[in-house]
Nucleic acid binder design. Structure first.
Lengths: 318, 318
DNA sequence: CGCCGCTCTGCTCATATGAGCAGAAACCAC
DNA sequence: GTGGTTTCTGCTCATATGAGCAGAGCGGCG
């Protein structure tokens, strides 16, 4: 064990009296037999060396410095980072991110007239955290295929309806499976006036709100039966780090399986990249690779994430 | 989810700018369009509600407020509480407590000429954390029986020798098993001039340093072969919360099995209670019950423990 | 051994924040 | 609607802390 110098230990003693006992620097000096100027330097030194940790513990807290650094590093318009401090596990963290996304959505100006939304657990959480009347007259349109083949919360319909209802708007669903087995069938569905109209509406939306899926067996696409676990393993072998609106991308943000992509119904990634406002809500340790792919390949203009993911994104970016 | 009032959210925003961004209260006010006095009140409110957490993260840090409260509540002379912040698991926490115990021992005045010590993992840690020359001329005497029947670190001999060596003193071992099977054999060993002399020296020590054992199967006494797991189960059934210098006590600090106690070699609990300086080092979640028994029944004059144990002791004390 | 350069210190003055007060605003009861 | 009470606000003055400076002290080199 390295011996620490006397000043380091003095700085800890001074910090204990100053922060824990609420003594003034003068009082700390009297107790430790030092001048108040020396005490001030010791406290500054303790802070500089990271021995003092000041955290803001609240469900609505943000990490402003990380937010600014993410914007500068990745050229995105906004970043919202929720802190790790005081969270109890992954669910709490996702709730925090969902709350932050809901707050951001409510603060968007001008209010989006048409909001394109994806579906999944995270989007469901955001819908729940939006307050009643978060806006007025927002029409919500579903941007990736998928109808509820099971009863779990987070279905496309439930999510879109909830967001629209709370904004006194209407929800437009995309009445199509997420992925078709045959390219011809997919083209027929897209050519249908009803589905084609929804896809056109999705393409013209003024803002988008979506999450990303991890490239794993618990993916919503696997649980919904569109892909098998073997399908996902193959996609991972080909470099997939996750999916955005049902489309699997690699670390560079490129489609890993063009054939699968062709059979996938919903907003294209090119259209998403051209959007003026696209809010990606991506939090949790398992989503770091896909978060990185999203921010580095222009797939979002706003990222809502957690502190650990933000630090991971910034750690290897240089 | 309860709606929080606007001031609570404002206080979080203000705290982020003040603590994370290092803005002055004037600057925070300009940004949030508030007066600096309002900002000051918001920050004070955030602190009062516990949204601001200031922690001192250092191996030598202490929790002075908890220490004072423990002394007042339990009437002990000194309490040393090491913080949980920044520790990586139970081993790190025990190392912190051992370091704090070593620091305290080195600061004892007058320097104890004869120090009675117990043995076990915690005492071994303390021995390791003591610095060379922590004192001069301290003779160390073993206060509970037990010779090393296995090779692990923490044996009585190794611990006592290490503490004595670092203080340029001598170690006196107690050449006896911890527990004898027959009362007659125990009495014979105690009557032997050599063992009797060591026990006398132990009874007359100027200070004591010991830890407590949990009442479980991984007890040092079980691992050393003095007791079987069934023996310990029976002791627990009878109310044992742990052992002090090899003697099992209940929540009130009373011996739970007088017959076993009679066959146990070493310092008696009555002698320990009469000591002017007895330092108990008891840290870790599993040791809360025995820590409480020790401090409430006059078995120590100084307690070295961790933050969680301190909070647990104070939580139900009223 | 002396000199030079760097670091540390105590201090003065400026800045930042807190305490307490007076007045305004909000709320409640009649 | 009015009056009284409580809470909140902006402010003044006091206190606490920071910035920058001059001098002391320490260490290294010639």
């Amino acid at each position: 064990m390295d011996t620490i110098d006397n000043d380091e230990l003095l700085s800890i003693r001074a910090a204990e009296l100053y922060y824990d006992e609420n003594k003034t620097q003068d009082e700390v000096g009297a107790i430790l037999k030092l001048t108040r100027w020396k005490v001030g330097r010791l406290l500054a030194s303790a802070k500089e060396k990271g021995f003092i940790r000041i955290e803001i513990v609240h469900p609505r807290a943000r990490k402003l410095t990380l937010e600014r650094t993410l914007c500068e590093r990745f050229g995105i318009r906004d970043a919202i980072v929720v802190p790790a401090a005081g969270t109890q596990g992954a669910d709490d963290l996702r709730a925090r991110a969902a709350q932050a996304a809901a707050d951001y959505l409510a603060s968007l100006r001008p209010v989006p007239r048409v909001l394109g939304v994806s579906w999944g657990r995270t989007l469901h959480d955001v819908a729940e955290h939006l307050s009643e009347g978060w806006a007025t007259g927002v029409n919500v349109v579903q941007i990736n295929g998928g109808v509820s083949v099971n009863q779990r919360a987070g279905t496309a319909a439930a999510t879109a309806f909830e967001i629209a209802r709370k904004a006194s708007g209407q929800a437009t669903l995309l009445p199509s499976p997420a992925i078709l087995e045959r390219l011809e069938t997919k083209r027929s569905i897209e050519a249908d006036r009803t589905v084609g109209g929804v896809l056109g509406m999705a393409a013209d939306a003024s803002a988008y709100l979506y999450s990303a899926g991890v490239a794993g067996h618990d993916s919503a696409l696997v649980e919904s039966g569109y892909l098998t676990p073997n399908d996902v393993d193959e996609l991972v072998r080909r470099g997939a780090v996750g999916d955005v609106v049902g489309r699997y991308i690699d670390a560079a943000g490129m489609i890993v399986d063009p054939s699968l992509n062709e059979r996938t119904v919903g907003l294209s990634l090119d259209t998403l990249r051209r959007a003026t406002t696209s809010v990606a809500v991506i939090a949790g340790a398992g989503k770091i690779p896909v978060a990185r792919a999203v921010v580095t390949s222009g797939l979002c203009t706003v990222l809502v994430t957690d502190e650990a993911t933000a630090l991971a994104l910034l750690d290897t970016g240089s």
